[in-house]
Each structure stands twice: as structure tokens, then as C-alpha cells.
Design a protein around this nucleic acid. Structure first.
Lengths: 321, 321
DNA sequence: TCATATAGGACAGATCGCGACCTACATGGC
DNA sequence: GCCATGTAGGTCGCGATCTGTCCTATATGA
């Protein structure tokens, strides 16, 4: 059996701890001679994992940053922490790494022991709704299934609730999972309608792979994100937000992030924000969090929402009596 | 050299993909005979990683969830996604797994290639301020250093800004990193003052380990979190929030999470929230996000903040003219 | 200066990995 | 019901390699 492989993994696990390990202690732990430990260290280095050694009387080994990612050896709690972090990241896609988050989540959840899975579910339930306004957040498990089916080129069956509430059964060949405007979309070939379709992930219910693998279909466009964006903006007109912020442009851009839109200075103390306004609640809370005065010019819906929110806050804070 | 170990790692990496791998394809990729692949699969199973095999004409191997976490083999983007997710999780400690998040982050950043580290920094800068109100978020790198020093029992030198703005140099022996009331605290033995002290992590600047390892000191109390909480509440009186929410108790508890405080029902449509109110801004936005009517009874500071926020929102949404 | 740490060469013996056969069994499509 | 294709596993022999026990060189801090 792979006695040495197991030992190398255990060694990697120990070296990923923030502390330093003397060779003698490693030998004791792994129940081999110190010479074998030195050879194992050599082997790890040959595999590309730079083991740093400090010489002298208080020396020891530790794993340093190299050119490639070594295998991460996590204990239970760390694995749970990562899963929870990735779930909240998937629920709030504002990055440029949304797809990688879901891939990593899929990878982790695939091998996560079931006892840990329960803890992740309980913790994520408490943390996910933190940012979500009225919008129901996407179920990360759904995202994992969608991404897996797309990567595996597996036919997928699911129930889809359209905008007017009607529910239909779909049989599709998922191609890619992309984000646009703070929402997740599945780009897939619809086998019943014989055409490419876009599905909002939060409207997909009970997805399960059929197990049937299908050959790769030629995609409708090179860039899936561009295709999704084009379809979205052609079908539903997306209004734009225009607002004046009483905040220097530099600060506003830094605190809003790139996803919020474009910021241009007006003078030293104010700037103008332009950007897509897909979810009013999110945008409103974001602007309020800036802590500065601001005025919304467009769209009227955002103005109305802010007035309603303001009235509610005023009522909530009214002097009791 | 460890030819087999490298192959086993590569095999694990492939099997962590959501797709299924036929043995023949694995053999081709890893440039060994199919028989060796079957033996490697056996080896992985003996190591405790359950490789699931579906038999038949369209069969293949894939890694399933077992009883222990297998080593995670991540590509660059996935590693960055995890690091970003953990950083935001560390910046918003409301879980019960805060410490594990930092441990995992330390483990990951220790081995993260430098080219990826830059990307993490750029992305995290754009996402972290999302939730932070007026409060400056903690630098996750500081947390990583603090946790590492505590785990390694290494003396740590840093600059500390006290509440009134004065800055002092400290030489300490970190013991544990804990959270209380949405903030990070370092429990450490202060070598200059010869006593245990508590430091707010966001007031710690430029921490760097001295490299000197010291023997474990007997902690002032069994539970570090309890000690920190006792110190905090004895020094600065923390006021409590009391509010009535027009929302069923079950829904409110689920959407607020356990960290927000205690929820008890009043009738079928309303409930009462009691809990510590350490950061007004955070609590106010949390309550507003619930989307329901509510009234704040205590503390008066929160009422005042809500009125100010409401006035600002109303001004921002005023009909333009 | 000395103790203690990493670094690495040489050697002998035992172990084990590998490929090349083989058979058994499960599954899905024809 | 047959056949193709996949996993599962036994056996055998050759060769590679892993391990422990020596050995010496070298860097570092008290």
C-alpha cells in the first residue's frame, strides 16, 4: 500500500501549520527515522513545494509560498469555514471570480463529509440573508449542481418558474453558468424547444442530472457572458441609475467597487454615479451605507424606494410615547 | 523519487472534478497502464478517500464524500476565490467559526503564490467595504499574523492606538484571537506591563513576530472568549437594543441570525428583539433590510441614528425639481 | 566553543511498484 | 438475449526504490 504517500500527505499537513517543525519531531510523529524525513522533505521539494528550512540551533521546517498551489489539508472546522465563506460569496456575486467560487464550492461540497455538511447548512442559513434585500438569494446547492452539469456536459432536468409564476418542466444541456447584474444565469440548450435559452438560477427548482452525457454543442457565441447580457438587455429594458454623491470621486469609487457603475467627479466634494440598476434594494442600501448625502436623479423607482425606506426608518426611530 | 506520490495527487486532483473519469482515460493522462490506475484507486480507498465507481458501459470514477477531508487540489482561480471569501468572512465575524476562518486563511495565504496574492488583494479591496458601515474593517492580513503568532507561541511586537488616539509600542505573547460583538480581539500577555491585556485587532498596526518562541503561559481563564467578554463589559457599559418587529418571530429569528440577539414572539405578527447593540450602523441596516415595519425602544442612540438615516434617504429620494 | 539544527553521501537488505497477462461481474444499447 | 465496454481483482516476475544505519559537512545562537 501507499505507505510513503500517506506519510507525505501527513507531512504536508503538518508543514501547513503556521509553526516551525524540527526534523526530529517530525520523525517522531510520523514514526520513521530522521533520515527518512529529510528524504521526504527532498521529495516534496522535487514536487515543487518549497519547504523552507531555518538552520541552526532553533531551526525547523515550514512550507513557504511557491509557484503552484500545494494540496490544502484542512481540518473539519476549516473546511466548514471555507464552505460557508464560498456560499455567501456565491449568494452575492460582485467580483469577477463568481464562477471560480462556484467551482471551488462544488469541489469542496463533493468531498465534504456529511456531518460537516449539516453544520455548513445551519451556519450558511444564518449568514446568507445578511445582505439580501427583498430579493430571495440563490440556493448555493443549486449553483453547484448547475455548474457540475455544465462541466460534465450532462443533461439536466429541472422545474422553471417563469416571471408570471407558471412552472414548466425543462430538459436541457447546460453550457455555462454566468453572472450578470448581481444574478446567476444558466446558459443551456433547451432540448424540448430545440434552441439556446437563458434561465435565472433563482427560478430553477429541483435540478437533477439525468446521468446522460451528451457531446459538446457549438455555443451560440464565443463569450457566454456577452450572450447572456445581450439577451437580457434586449428582452427586458434595464434602467440606469444616475445619482449625485456628496463625496470625492476617489473615495466613492473605492467604497462602491467597480460593479456598482461608473463614477466621475463633479468637483472636489461631489461626484456623479452612473450604472445599471438591476436590484433597487441592493443599490439603495449600498448608497445609504456610504454615509454621505446624495441625490438620486434616475430611475424614479429608486427615488420612490428611498422615500419609502426613509419613512420606515423615521417611523422606527420616532421618539417613543 | 516519489513518482507514485505525484501520480496519486494528480489522480486526486482529477477525481475532484465534478465529472466522471473512465479508468482508460486516467491511464492515458497519467501515462501508466490501466492496471496501475486500478491499484492507485485502491490505494486512495485504503487512505480513506472513498472513490465511487459506476459500473457498466458508461461507467467511471469520481471522488465521493467520506469521513475525512481529502486534500483539496485547487487551481489558481479557485484558490483566489477561497481567499477572497475567507477575507470577507474574517471582516464580518458573525458566525461561530470566525477562528476557523482565520486559521484557514492563514493556511492558505502561507502557501499562496505571490502572483495570486496580488489578485486577492485587489479583489478583496473591492468587496470588503460592502457591509461595513462607518466602522473601518479589520485588515485580514493582520488577523492572519495575530493568529499565527498565537498558534506558534511567538512573541509579537506591534503599535497600538488606544481609544484616545495615542500610539504605544507593545511587546506581547499572544494567546488567542477571539471575537466579541462583531469585533476581533487579541488576548495576549503584555511583556512590558507584566499582565494579561486585550487588544482590539483593528487598532493594531504593523504587527511582526520577533521569531522568539516562548513557553506556554497559563491562561487567565479557561475560556478566552469569556475572559474577553468580561473585560469588555466591565470597562465599557454596552447598551442593549430593544425593538418591536412587525414580523412573525420565526421569520425574524431566521433572517436575523443568532448573533443579532434574542427574539421572542408577541403575537402571530410581531415579536420583540433584545440583544447587544455594539455597532449602531450595522444593526440599523440589518433591521431595515428585514423589509418590515419596526419600532426601536432602546437605545435612544439607535433611534436618533435611524431618524438621521431616514431623513437622508428621504432627501435622496425627493422628487427632483 | 559547544550544542543543535539542516544537508546529504554510501551501502545493504527488504519491500514494493509495475506491466502483462488472466477471469468475473455489472450495465446499457442493439 | 447478445455484445461491447466498463470496473474489480488475482498472479507472477523483474526491476526499481524505499528505509535504516552509518558517516561527514555546515550554519546558527547561547
Amino acid at each position: 500500500m501507499g505507505d510513503m504517500s500517506a506519510r507525505l500527505l501527513a507531512l504536508l499537513s503538518l508543514l501547513q501549520t503556521p509553526r516551525e517543525w524540527p526534523g526530529s519531531e517530525l520523525a517522531e510523529r510520523l514514526e520513521v527515522s530522521p533520515r527518512t524525513i529529510r528524504r521526504d522533505i527532498d521529495r516534496l521539494r522535487e514536487l515543487g513545494y518549497p519547504v523552507q528550512a531555518t538552520m541552526g540551533a532553533v531551526g525547523g521546517y515550514r512550507l513557504a509560498a511557491g509557484t503552484a498551489m500545494p494540496p490544502l489539508l484542512l481540518d473539519d472546522e476549516e473546511a466548514v469555514a471555507i464552505a460557508v465563506g464560498l456560499r455567501t460569496a456565491a449568494a452575492h456575486p460582485v467580483d469577477g471570480i463568481e464562477e471560480a467560487s462556484v467551482r471551488a464550492l462544488a469541489k469542496l461540497e463533493q468531498v465534504l463529509p456529511s456531518r460537516l455538511r449539516h453544520r455548513v447548512g445551519a451556519l450558511a442559513a444564518a449568514t446568507v440573508p445578511m445582505l439580501a434585500g427583498a430579493e430571495p438569494p440563490v440556493d448555493p446547492r443549486t449553483l453547484v449542481v448547475l455548474a457540475g452539469a455544465a462541466a460534465n456536459r450532462e443533461r439536466l432536468r429541472f422545474a422553471y418558474r417563469s416571471g408570471d409564476g407558471t412552472e414548466t418542466k425543462r430538459l436541457t444541456e447546460p453550457y455555462r453558468l454566468v453572472t450578470a447584474g448581481r444574478r446567476w444565469y444558466l446558459l443551456a440548450y433547451d432540448n424540448d424547444r430545440d434552441d439556446w435559452r437563458i434561465f435565472r438560477a433563482d427560478r430553477i427548482g429541483a435540478p437533477h442530472p439525468t446521468g446522460v452525457r451528451v457531446p459538446a454543442r457549438v455555443p451560440p457565441e464565443q463569450d457566454p457572458a456577452a450572450f447572456v447580457a445581450a439577451r437580457l438587455y434586449s428582452s427586458a429594458p434595464v434602467y440606469e441609475v444616475v445619482a449625485t454623491l456628496r463625496l470625492p470621486a476617489g473615495q466613492a469609487a473605492g467604497r462602491l467597487g467597480a460593479a456598482a457603475g461608473h463614477v466621475e467627479p463633479i468637483d472636489d466634494h461631489s461626484c456623479r454615479l452612473r450604472g445599471p440598476a438591476d436590484t433597487l434594494e441592493w443599490l439603495a442600501s449600498r448608497l445609504l451605507m456610504l454615509g454621505c448625502e446624495f441625490e438620486v436623479h434616475e430611475p424614479p423607482e429608486l427615488r420612490a424606494y428611498l422615500r419609502a425606506l426613509g419613512a420606515r426608518a423615521t417611523r422606527a426611530g420616532a421618539v417613543s410615547g
